[in-house]
Design a protein around this nucleic acid. Structure first.
Lengths: 212, 212
DNA sequence: ACATAACTACCTGCTTTCAGGTATTTTTTA
DNA sequence: TAAAAAATACCTGAAAGCAGGTAGTTATGT
């Protein structure tokens, strides 16, 4: 049985060494190469195929996110697992948005590394427990956040959703069989309730208050 | 040791019965009550305190999401776990946004229920494996999505981010020490690249393409 | 039945956006 | 070094948005 080839991209050789050590008993995985910079990695990938890439997102010569997107564009099927000390929701979501399939923190153990590899090979997204928690926390609202959000009327909610869909005033008026003046009044009331002075800020604030 | 009181809100008594059966050996948990509708649940909560609520989001008299937000406003510390057959990213994220702490699918087993209760009692967000996967999938981009996104110049990216922050043309011009005409040209070019005809649609499309 | 809230519509004046271009300068690439 | 790309700036005209209100009708709540 041919072992699954893995590429490690990390500017610290000790990291690659540590991972190789973790995987030395795993007969179905093989570290095909370890690169310490983006250029070497891209060169390697030009002539070689791997199934999995462990990618440090803090590289010296290239932004790891950009490299991730670059690799993803060229190799649609390769699984890319981010490797980092950064446990921030913004970076995690950006990494996935740039084509990543998984995200591990550098304090991971062997078990978690293998679990991640299993999951992405099974076409699943894998985040380490800490990263997963960080990402999920973004979705949550506290009682205070919900309490402070102003109450919108039925029509205001409707207008807000249509604005969020990208319709402008006249288009909303046409869709709801109302006057443009009416839409403008609702919009004005919405802007007053959320204490903003433009439609863009209205939508931004509404998102923050979880109204859309 | 006082067992943790749980409230079950589900319009099917069989569900509450099944959960009670799952938890019958768990001495540190106690089903305090099972309600079949929102009104009964709110009445119960007026006179009683529970630590955990298992909430079916498809209730007959009230939208489960609205009920969740309502309970959250009144009881900041209670842990609310959604209970549903719906495994859709939109509903999951809305449930969390309305104050939920966890989300279980109705095909869950006893182990997963206990794991969820442990996690939320530990102030963590818990999603069942299936729900978690559904939510994470939203963050990911394929090679095609990345390939098809138009390439933006340095200034275009900068303008886009500032528009996303809610600034209008003149404000961006002032911030970047450029002419308003220049900003409008960049905006026009952005709109052309993303094939839209308003700033709102530009921001919407940019989000879909993971540019912001 | 009355008061209140929500919804509807209107209007002026000003600002901003959008669409349609043109054109010069600077930076980058080959 | 020259070509190409990016950045900058300009301009008109029309449409939309925003701020400032006023005001009548309908639905809801007490």
């Amino acid at each position: 049985m041919i072992p699954i080839p893995i590429l490690i991209i990390d500017d610290h050789p000790l990291v690659a060494g540590g991972i190789a050590m973790m995987l030395r008993d795993v007969t179905w995985l093989q570290v095909a190469c370890a690169c310490t910079n983006a250029a070497d990695a891209l060169n390697f990938l030009n002539d070689n195929t791997v199934d999995i890439i462990l990618l440090d997102i803090s590289l010296p010569d290239t932004d790891g996110l950009t490299l991730c997107a670059q690799i993803r564009r060229m190799h649609k099927a390769v699984k890319i697992i981010g490797l980092t000390s950064i446990n921030e929701a913004g970076i995690i979501s950006q990494f996935l948005a740039h084509g990543g399939n998984g995200y591990l923190l550098k304090d991971m153990g062997r078990e978690e590394l293998l679990e991640a590899i299993d999951a992405v090979m099974d076409n699943k997204v894998f985040l380490s427990k800490g990263a997963n928690q960080k990402l999920l926390e973004q979705f949550c609202s506290t009682g205070d956040a919900l309490k402070n959000a102003p109450v919108l009327t039925r029509r205001e909610k409707e207008i807000l959703l249509l604005l969020h869909e990208g319709l402008n005033g006249p288009q909303i008026a046409e869709k709801l069989f109302l006057s443009s003046y009416t839409i403008e009044t609702h919009r004005k009331n919405l802007m007053q309730k959320l204490n903003v002075s433009s439609t863009q800020l209205l939508l931004k604030k509404a998102k923050e208050c979880r109204m859309i």
